[in-house]
Amino acid sequence: MSQRKALVVDDEIHIVQVVAIKLRNNGFDVRTAENGAVALELIKTEKPDVIVTDYQMPVMSGLEFIENLRGDPETADIPVIMLTARGFAIEDEKKEQLKIANCLSKPFSPREVLRCIEETLSTSSVT
């Protein structure tokens, strides 16, 4: 079984780093990007199995990034987990429309991120 690939997108270097360490320690091959635009470029060369992205980022926000992903047949099905520090949750309709697997609020638990990813990947592999 090949190593699972994860992409972590956040403009906060410490957040990217802690999620990346957690995932690497649990067998993931992790790539990182500082915003949605950089992530889209990265995905062109290396398609991840799962993406963890922040909501609010400069240059390209998390929602814009996911909209771009869903607009491309090559990346439309990549499961996405969103981290958000906003004072309110993303609407269910939007979540469904963009096929966001889960939304975790900051401050988050790296354990919870890992659990979500495992759950999402097991669900998507079944389907």
Binding site: E12, H14, I15, A85, K106, P107, F108, S109
Partner: peptide, 8 residues
């Protein structure tokens, strides 16, 4: 954001 780093 900083709280998230501290917690994580």
């Amino acid at each position: 954001t900083p709280l998230a780093s501290i917690n994580a």
